[in-house]
């Protein structure tokens, strides 16, 4: 820091010459590719929405079936993300702190939901939980139905979201300094006090980031959900499926309007996640 500011001092207000080549070409290419693949297509959605009148837009995005789908999509994502916070923290904790047989395999397996195509996860979970499935056959006599209703949506979203929480909490737990815990113990704290007052505050930002990521992924998820949900209007129809339904009826205006609502929601979630990550970096003292 010192030497670089000293070197820059004579050439006042001029940016230091860049030693590494390739800035212009890589930035140019990045911007071009980003515009072509992401920004221009997404702006097509926004422009199409502006061709609707306000009434058209409002009726499309607040119809009773659409409102029911928002409740299901956001509600199920919220429940699934909360479940994942609890079990994700547990899995991360066990993987970082304890030794047991087969730990490396378990660690690798946590990424399965990232790697397994969503449609495969969908039909497989459905086969397990249907009345004649491996798991469903024991639940049906008890009157518990986990497939073809909103419960199924939650189950699928728990599967999809699990690695997000584990993989954001795990590195923070690994970096946590043991000295702090030792100090807490020597000062007379019980193990639970040490966890809730020393460890938990240090992983809370990561946990919240993982929660937001799992939630965001759940809101947009389509492939794994449609097989297990049963897709009954007003009951177990998710918002992405509403968009597909409108498209299949050539209701492009309606599909676009609902998609815009989804896009705005995902943009807000992305900004929240970015904010959380910045907070997490400040929290851990790393440079932002």
């Amino acid at each position: 820091m010192l030497s670089s500011s000293a070197a820059a001092a004579p050439a006042k207000r001029r940016a230091p010459a860049r030693v590494l080549p390739g800035f212009n070409i890589t930035l140019g290419y990045t911007l071009m590719y980003l515009s072509l693949i992401v920004l221009i297509p997404l702006s097509a959605l926004v422009f199409k929405t502006f061709t609707l009148t306000w009434d058209q837009f409002w009726t499309a995005v607040t119809g009773p079936r659409v409102m029911a789908s928002y409740r299901l999509t956001f509600g199920a994502s919220l429940i699934a993300a909360l479940v994942n916070v609890v079990f994700g923290l547990l899995v991360a904790w066990v993987l970082v702190r304890y030794q047991f047989f087969g730990k490396k395999v378990v660690d690798a397996l946590v990424d399965l939901p990232f790697a397994l195509p969503t449609a495969v996860a969908g039909i497989s979970l459905t086969a397990l939980l249907a009345g004649n499935g491996w798991v469903g056959q024991y639940l049906e006599p008890l009157g518990i139905q986990l497939a073809f209703n909103p419960n199924g949506v939650v189950i699928a979203l728990i599967f999809i979201g699990l690695p997000f929480v584990v993989r954001t909490v795990q590195p923070v737990l690994e970096d946590a300094e043991k000295e702090l815990e030792e100090a807490a113990t020597c000062l007379g704290a019980t193990r639970w006090q040490t966890f809730s007052k020393v460890i938990f505050p240090s992983i809370a930002p990561a946990l919240l980031t993982g929660f937001a990521m799992a939630f965001a992924r759940g809101v947009g998820e389509y492939g794994s959900v449609i097989f297990i949900a049963g897709n009954m209007p007003m009951i177990s129809e998710i918002t992405p499926l509403i968009i597909i339904g409108k498209l299949e009826q050539y209701d492009y205006a309606g599909a676009t309007a609902v998609a815009t609502v989804m896009l705005v929601a995902s943009f807000i979630l992305l900004l929240i996640i970015n904010g959380l990550q910045a907070w997490q970096r400040r929290h851990s003292g790393a440079p932002v």
Binding site: V219, Y252, L263
Partner: peptide, 30 residues
């Protein structure tokens, strides 16, 4: 490198992660 708008660019690169796949398909139809 350090440049103006870097954090915006980083956020935009992440954008497809949070857009629902169905919406992604729809924009190309449009």
């Amino acid at each position: 490198y350090e440049f103006k708008g870097k954090s915006v660019l980083t956020t935009l690169v992440d954008l497809p992660f949070s857009v629902s796949p169905v919406v992604a398909g729809l924009v190309y139809v449009l």
